[in-house]
Amino acid sequence: MSDWTAEDLDRIGAAEELELASRRADGTLRGYVTMWVARVGDELYVRSAYGPEAAWYRHAVASGDGRIRAGGVERDVRFADASPEVHRELDAAYHAKYDRHGPRIVGTVVGEHRDAVTIRLVPVG
Protein backbone atom coordinates (compact mmCIF):
# COMPACT_ATOMS: atom_id res chain seq x y z
CA MET A 1 0.00 0.00 0.00
CA SER A 2 1.14 3.56 -0.59
CA ASP A 3 -0.09 7.11 -0.19
CA TRP A 4 -1.32 9.38 -2.93
CA THR A 5 1.35 11.62 -4.39
CA ALA A 6 0.69 15.35 -4.26
CA GLU A 7 0.43 15.34 -8.06
CA ASP A 8 -2.10 12.48 -8.06
CA LEU A 9 -4.21 14.24 -5.43
CA ASP A 10 -4.16 17.48 -7.41
CA ARG A 11 -4.95 15.86 -10.74
CA ILE A 12 -7.66 13.48 -9.53
CA GLY A 13 -9.11 16.05 -7.13
CA ALA A 14 -9.42 18.61 -9.92
CA ALA A 15 -10.89 16.17 -12.44
CA GLU A 16 -14.55 16.75 -13.26
CA GLU A 17 -15.24 13.02 -13.29
CA LEU A 18 -13.63 9.78 -12.23
CA GLU A 19 -14.00 6.36 -13.81
CA LEU A 20 -14.12 3.42 -11.40
CA ALA A 21 -14.01 -0.32 -12.11
CA SER A 22 -14.26 -2.96 -9.40
CA ARG A 23 -12.40 -6.24 -9.62
CA ARG A 24 -14.20 -9.53 -10.19
CA ALA A 25 -13.32 -12.69 -8.21
CA ASP A 26 -11.18 -13.88 -11.14
CA GLY A 27 -9.11 -10.67 -11.01
CA THR A 28 -10.51 -9.04 -14.15
CA LEU A 29 -12.03 -5.59 -14.04
CA ARG A 30 -15.71 -4.85 -14.51
CA GLY A 31 -16.58 -2.03 -16.89
CA TYR A 32 -15.73 1.49 -15.80
CA VAL A 33 -18.50 3.65 -14.33
CA THR A 34 -18.27 7.44 -14.45
CA MET A 35 -18.92 9.43 -11.29
CA TRP A 36 -17.93 12.52 -9.34
CA VAL A 37 -14.92 12.53 -7.03
CA ALA A 38 -14.14 14.85 -4.13
CA ARG A 39 -10.99 15.48 -2.16
CA VAL A 40 -10.71 16.20 1.55
CA GLY A 41 -7.15 16.80 2.67
CA ASP A 42 -5.00 13.95 1.38
CA GLU A 43 -7.93 11.59 0.75
CA LEU A 44 -10.20 11.00 -2.24
CA TYR A 45 -13.83 9.91 -2.02
CA VAL A 46 -16.71 8.82 -4.20
CA ARG A 47 -20.38 8.42 -3.27
CA SER A 48 -23.20 6.47 -4.78
CA ALA A 49 -25.77 8.95 -6.08
CA TYR A 50 -28.27 6.11 -6.41
CA GLY A 51 -27.78 4.62 -2.96
CA PRO A 52 -26.64 1.18 -1.86
CA GLU A 53 -28.52 -0.61 -4.62
CA ALA A 54 -26.44 0.88 -7.43
CA ALA A 55 -24.65 -1.97 -9.18
CA TRP A 56 -21.21 -0.29 -9.20
CA TYR A 57 -21.47 0.37 -5.45
CA ARG A 58 -22.52 -3.19 -4.59
CA HIS A 59 -19.68 -4.59 -6.72
CA ALA A 60 -17.12 -2.21 -5.20
CA VAL A 61 -18.12 -3.11 -1.63
CA ALA A 62 -18.16 -6.83 -2.43
CA SER A 63 -14.79 -6.85 -4.20
CA GLY A 64 -12.97 -4.37 -1.99
CA ASP A 65 -10.67 -3.23 -4.77
CA GLY A 66 -10.42 -2.10 -8.36
CA ARG A 67 -8.98 0.62 -10.56
CA ILE A 68 -9.70 4.29 -11.10
CA ARG A 69 -8.92 6.76 -13.89
CA ALA A 70 -9.17 10.54 -13.59
CA GLY A 71 -7.15 13.58 -14.52
CA GLY A 72 -4.70 11.49 -16.54
CA VAL A 73 -3.98 9.25 -13.54
CA GLU A 74 -4.77 5.53 -13.52
CA ARG A 75 -4.28 3.60 -10.26
CA ASP A 76 -5.24 0.39 -8.53
CA VAL A 77 -7.17 1.21 -5.38
CA ARG A 78 -8.73 -0.39 -2.37
CA PHE A 79 -12.29 0.66 -1.52
CA ALA A 80 -12.36 1.62 2.16
CA ASP A 81 -14.90 3.03 4.58
CA ALA A 82 -14.86 6.74 5.28
CA SER A 83 -14.49 7.90 8.86
CA PRO A 84 -17.68 9.47 10.25
CA GLU A 85 -15.82 12.72 10.93
CA VAL A 86 -15.16 13.42 7.24
CA HIS A 87 -18.75 13.70 5.99
CA ARG A 88 -19.34 17.38 6.77
CA GLU A 89 -16.08 18.37 5.03
CA LEU A 90 -16.86 16.01 2.16
CA ASP A 91 -20.28 17.58 1.64
CA ALA A 92 -18.58 20.99 1.52
CA ALA A 93 -16.04 19.69 -1.01
CA TYR A 94 -18.80 18.33 -3.26
CA HIS A 95 -20.69 21.64 -3.00
CA ALA A 96 -17.58 23.68 -3.81
CA LYS A 97 -16.74 21.56 -6.81
CA TYR A 98 -20.15 20.76 -8.29
CA ASP A 99 -22.78 23.32 -7.15
CA ARG A 100 -22.75 24.86 -10.60
CA HIS A 101 -24.75 21.79 -11.71
CA GLY A 102 -27.67 22.83 -9.50
CA PRO A 103 -29.09 21.66 -6.17
CA ARG A 104 -31.13 18.77 -7.55
CA ILE A 105 -28.15 16.92 -8.99
CA VAL A 106 -25.70 17.87 -6.21
CA GLY A 107 -28.32 16.72 -3.70
CA THR A 108 -27.79 13.16 -4.93
CA VAL A 109 -24.28 13.09 -3.42
CA VAL A 110 -24.51 15.29 -0.32
CA GLY A 111 -26.27 14.99 3.01
CA GLU A 112 -26.66 12.39 5.71
CA HIS A 113 -28.47 10.04 3.32
CA ARG A 114 -25.15 9.63 1.44
CA ASP A 115 -22.84 9.05 4.41
CA ALA A 116 -23.43 5.27 4.32
CA VAL A 117 -22.56 5.03 0.61
CA THR A 118 -19.25 6.87 0.76
CA ILE A 119 -16.10 5.10 -0.36
CA ARG A 120 -12.58 6.27 0.41
CA LEU A 121 -10.15 5.47 -2.40
CA VAL A 122 -6.87 4.08 -1.09
CA PRO A 123 -4.00 3.73 -3.58
CA VAL A 124 -2.38 0.30 -3.87
CA GLY A 125 1.15 -0.29 -5.10
Rank of each mutant, 00 (worst) to 15 (best):
S2F: 09
D3V: 12
T5C: 02
E7C: 04
E7L: 03
E7M: 03
D10A: 12
G13Q: 03
A14L: 02
A15T: 06
A15G: 01
E16T: 15
L20I: 12
L20H: 05
L20Y: 02
A21V: 08
A21F: 01
S22I: 04
R23I: 00
R23D: 06
R24I: 07
G27S: 03
L29M: 04
L29W: 06
R30N: 15
G31N: 14
Y32L: 14
Y32R: 15
Y32C: 14
V33D: 13
T34C: 06
M35T: 15
W36N: 13
V37Y: 04
V37C: 09
A38P: 11
R39N: 08
V40N: 12
D42C: 05
E43S: 15
Y45A: 05
V46D: 00
V46F: 02
V46E: 01
V46C: 01
V46Y: 02
R47H: 05
S48Q: 11
S48M: 11
A49Y: 06
Y50D: 07
G51S: 06
G51V: 08
P52K: 10
E53W: 02
E53K: 10
E53P: 04
E53R: 10
A54C: 01
W56H: 07
Y57P: 14
R58M: 07
R58N: 12
R58W: 03
A60K: 01
V61F: 01
S63M: 08
G64I: 07
G64C: 09
G66D: 05
R67L: 02
R69G: 05
R69H: 06
V73L: 00
V73Y: 00
E74T: 08
R75S: 13
R78H: 08
F79R: 10
A80Q: 13
A80M: 11
D81S: 11
D81L: 09
D81E: 11
A82T: 05
P84R: 12
P84D: 13
E85Q: 10
R88G: 13
R88N: 13
L90V: 15
L90W: 11
L90E: 14
D91Q: 09
A93N: 10
A93Q: 11
Y94I: 02
H95W: 10
A96L: 06
Y98D: 06
D99Q: 10
R100H: 15
R100G: 10
H101R: 12
H101I: 12
G102R: 00
G102S: 04
P103D: 10
P103H: 05
R104G: 12
R104E: 14
I105G: 09
G107V: 02
V109G: 08
V110F: 03
H113F: 02
A116G: 15
T118M: 00
T118C: 03
T118G: 03
I119Y: 00
R120H: 09
V122T: 14
V122M: 11
V122Q: 15
V124Y: 04
G125C: 05
G125N: 10
G125R: 13
